[in-house]
Simulated assay, not measured.
Amino acid sequence: MDRHADLGEFLRSRRARLRPADVGLVDYGGRRRVPGLRREELARLAGVSVGYYTRLEQGQSPNASDAVLDAIARVLRLDDTERSHLYALARPAVAASRRGTRPERLRSEVGVLVESLGAVPALVLGRRADVLAWNRMAHALLAGHLDFTAPRRPAGRPNWARMFFLEPHVRDLFTDWERKARDTVADLRLIAGRHPHDTRLAALVGELTTRSADFAALWAAHPVRGCAHHTRTYRHPVVGRLTLTDELLQLPDDEGQRLVVFSAEPGSASEAALRLLGGLAAGSAESDPPASRPTQPAR
């Protein structure tokens, strides 16, 4: 990914969403060539020269000070997540490392934890949105059409972003697909800003941009937002509609990896549907031939 191009795209997208009146400028009417704030208007409000801001937006000022970035963030009304993203894009990135090419590993202790959460769906996402592990419940909820053992094979791991945008089965699962799509891209944008030299992540973005018009449009809009928790309604092909809350928990010893756990409101119809799904998932596990049953935590 081109960090300099991403910086310019991000700043232009944030300028475009503001009107002069939003920042206290008088709009004398007439036709504006660009939507939102002009470069010179933003530069004046931030207290920098137009030339300097233009170079920053073009990725030619890699050593912008905290004061300048804070001033720009203030004028653009960036929230905390967007401000952190601005810093990640504007500052020189560390040299590329082997982490940009090698598959992620899952600690065996985390694999055991996921399996132990058998009563609720649980999975682990890597920083590239690869599914590193899931229990039977998460597999039955999200991807029962896939091989349960797929996350154990680094070359064939399911990728959540790829599944979400390219597989009709997953798309049909969400009643609020558009909102979920924006959240997925916003989260991936944030991750990409933190890992500009990750070649596997860049390849994923390139693939999705080429193969999904929905992804390409959302990526161009440059949404930025981290995922922490959501409540969504699912349209499951077997147990019907159910409303679940998902919590995304950062794994502190595994950079970028997150544990995702789903739960239903106690006593609700969704909880009953989740129990039914659990029974079906358990039955599926019992019907597996011995050679395909898990014998050790995923790695």
Score class of each variant (00 low, 15 high):
201 L>G: 05
7 L>Q: 03
295 T>F: 08
49 S>I: 02
166 L>C: 07
288 D>L: 11
51 G>Q: 12
3 R>H: 12
207 E>D: 13
104 E>D: 03
170 V>W: 09
71 A>I: 06
64 A>H: 13
34 V>M: 06
95 A>F: 04
114 V>P: 00
249 L>F: 04
241 R>E: 15
178 E>V: 10
166 L>M: 12
147 D>G: 04
53 Y>Q: 10
216 A>T: 08
187 D>W: 09
205 V>I: 15
263 S>K: 04
219 W>E: 00
228 A>P: 00
264 A>Y: 09
29 G>R: 03
30 G>P: 15
183 D>W: 04
97 S>T: 15
162 R>S: 14
124 V>A: 00
229 H>M: 07
125 L>K: 01
124 V>P: 01
285 A>M: 12
42 L>Y: 08
195 H>D: 15
8 G>L: 01
55 R>S: 05
109 E>W: 08
131 V>L: 12
162 R>E: 13
106 L>T: 01
246 D>G: 03
274 L>N: 06
148 F>E: 10
180 K>E: 15
123 L>G: 01
234 Y>K: 06
158 P>Q: 13
227 C>H: 11
81 T>M: 05
81 T>H: 10
276 L>R: 14
224 V>T: 11
85 H>A: 10
189 R>D: 01
214 D>G: 06
180 K>S: 15
203 A>V: 03
108 S>P: 00
262 F>R: 00
195 H>K: 06
167 E>C: 13
13 S>A: 15
276 L>G: 12
6 D>T: 03
141 L>V: 11
214 D>A: 14
7 L>F: 02
267 G>K: 05
154 P>F: 10
83 R>W: 10
